[in-house]
Nucleic acid binder design. Structure first.
Lengths: 196, 196
DNA sequence: ATAGGAGTAGACCGATTGGTCTATTGGTTG
DNA sequence: CAACCAATAGACCAATCGGTCTACTCCTAT
């Protein structure tokens, strides 16, 4: 947590990830950013020649990787796919509470900017696709068919994404904790898995 | 569609709604906004004494009301709750395509700003709650129990919200059109309603 | 006819924006 | 030691930001 112990580049990335998440790309000025990272302007443009945009991409990548780790950790000790997905929801709910209950999706808040920013959009897609694939891999691991696994993974992604948004508006992680009730059943599973 | 025929105040609101949706609150400058609305600065501050913030709230309200109308229209000729919800998804998919495939949620993009903006957050919650209640009313109309209706409505909201976000990243409305497969089944329905 | 107010028009303001540029530091090489 | 270079530091810049202010138009009510 002691950010001052980290190298400047990492401090910049972390500060950017945090600030963009809560105020959006355009809502954060370089001044706020540099103050938060306790770095001078020269360092920013040394490590990120293209300035703010470069930093945003790096921040999104970093945040996305963190999410991948959270997903992995959630499924690590899971007995079933639903078990892992449930743990993921609870982990995210806790994260939501810890970060002040009003931050947005780290990728979305950072990368969804106006038209003409094709690279930002492409990067956002890559990140999201990465999350879905990570979940899908675990679904596979639990024996789900390829197509099934894909659908289930996307389902979980959609609910979490929507749930996070609603949680933000309500300033409450309640919705996130209630998600497991919703993805416990999926169309093709209703007949496949007889129980529960 | 001929915006120049509308009174200035409405032109401002519509321009704001459109621009905020695609670039976010901080991503839009007053200059862009006034140019889009073909209105001078004096008019803005005449109709909205508190400037950009007031305008944003009005724009979100207007966009939210439009969404309520889309929901109502979707359920108007529906035979079942699923039927109406499905129509809603397809209507939104079409809307997503028509608006360039990269706009965000009109309420979220406009109102989710940094901390200290309690009013914006409260307003976002009101809008979202309004959408959910509108869907819930239709669920009730189709005979679902109060608690059931609420849960189903929230479920639809979450999937659409998440689906829209993913659609944006993918620049494709495909996800939105696939949502009906996901909310066709809900936990308590699996046993309550034998048939799907 | 005229007084008054709603609405339009845009010049203007200080603050802040993202970005550039030069100077300097400090560690690692020869 | 000297040379070099990654990294730090912050002064400085034009452009733009959101917002204020005055002037003017035009319609309405008396």
């Amino acid at each position: 947590m002691d950010k001052s112990a980290l190298p400047t580049k990492d401090r910049l990335i972390r500060a950017a990830a945090q600030l963009f998440r809560s105020r959006g790309y355009h809502g954060v000025g370089l001044n706020d950013l540099l103050a938060e990272a306790t770095a001078p302007k020269g360092s920013l443009y040394h490590h990120f020649p293209n300035g703010k945009a470069d930093l945003a991409l790096a921040a999104a990548t970093w945040a996305s990787d963190e999410m991948l780790r959270v997903i992995a950790a959630s499924f690590a000790g899971a007995k079933t796919f639903e078990d892992g997905a449930t743990t993921l929801c609870f982990k995210l709910a806790k994260l939501f509470d810890l970060t002040g209950q009003q931050d947005g999706c780290p990728v979305g808040s950072t990368l969804f900017e106006g038209p003409g920013n094709a690279e930002f959009l492409r990067h956002a897609e890559r990140c999201y696709e990465g999350w879905i694939e990570e979940v899908q891999d675990h679904a596979n691991r639990f024996g789900l068919q390829e197509a099934d696994a894909r659908r289930r993974a996307e389902h979980v992604f959609l609910l979490i994404q929507g749930g996070w948004q609603l949680a933000r508006a309500r300033k409450s992680s309640e919705v996130l904790r209630g998600l497991p009730e919703l993805f416990a059943y999926a169309p093709q599973m209703a007949s496949t898995t007889g129980k529960n």
